[in-house]
């Protein structure tokens, strides 16, 4: 099994270090209401990009499992869903922090907030389904892959289609401008794009590590049982 190459760590250190240092200390455009909270762009938005990417990989590996019937792919799908869930929770928390200072409340029932919360609920049902099988690995993998495919389609409906049909206070929705309007001199995107690449890369590497751990655990259990 291939381990993570050293230069991946180096690149990640550079990208995320750059994001943290310049994202927290660098110059940002001073705007009314938003103020310093505009720095959330480097930490909140990449979380959602990362979550969708990781859930997409999880969905792909679920399809691979159903095609090949090898539980290797199912473990990979599980690992990616785990990291995606972590990103979702972090995204929700950073979003709530941002909302406290701009909308006035941590939770104001905005369509975007609601659909993100429901998306996390769907994936927590996926984990519950996973824990409710104990012995039959093949059956567990099959049921989980089916549920994962359903969950991915519903989360696409939730995150990309539903909030667009209703009025929302979230930037980039319902007539509210996205970040492009605030980015007057193009200084935001010099940190925003590296931040997206860094966070997604970090997520994929972490998911692969969890996958390796799950594979080793599976091998150990399998040898002890037989």
């Amino acid at each position: 099994m291939a381990t993570v190459k050293k230069w991946h760590y180096g690149m990640l250190f550079l990208l995320l270090g750059y994001t943290f240092i310049f994202g927290l200390l660098g110059e940002v455009p001073q705007l009314p209401i938003l103020g310093q909270t505009i720095r959330g762009l480097y930490f909140h938005v990449p979380m959602w990009f990362g979550m969708v990417t990781l859930f997409f990989f999880s969905f792909l590996y679920a399809i691979f499992f159903l095609r090949t019937k090898k539980t290797f792919w199912d473990r990979k799908a599980y690992a990616f869903a785990q990291v995606g869930m972590l990103y979702g929770i972090l995204g929700l928390l950073t979003g709530m922090l941002w909302a406290k200072f701009t909308w006035g409340k941590y939770w104001s029932g905005d369509p975007k907030q609601n659909s993100a919360a429901v998306c996390l609920l769907i994936y927590s049902a996926y984990f519950l389904l996973r824990f409710s099988f104990t012995s039959h690995i093949q059956l567990q993998a099959k049921m989980n892959s089916v549920y994962s495919i359903l969950a991915f389609f519903m989360s696409i409906l939730l995150l990309f289609i539903l909030p667009r049909l209703t009025d929302s206070l979230h930037p980039g929705n319902g007539g509210n401008p996205g970040f492009n309007v605030y980015d007057l001199d193009g200084s935001l995107r010099w940190i925003f794009y590296p931040a997206i690449i860094g966070w997604i890369w970090w997520g994929i590497i972490m998911a692969n590590m969890i996958h390796r751990y799950l594979n080793l655990k599976h091998q150990l259990l399998y040898t002890y049982e037989n």
């Binding site: 429901v118 049902a125 519903m154």
Partner: peptide
Amino acid sequence: AVLGIPLVLP
């Protein structure tokens, strides 16, 4: 119900 309700929510 546990698996179905989150899918039905949206």
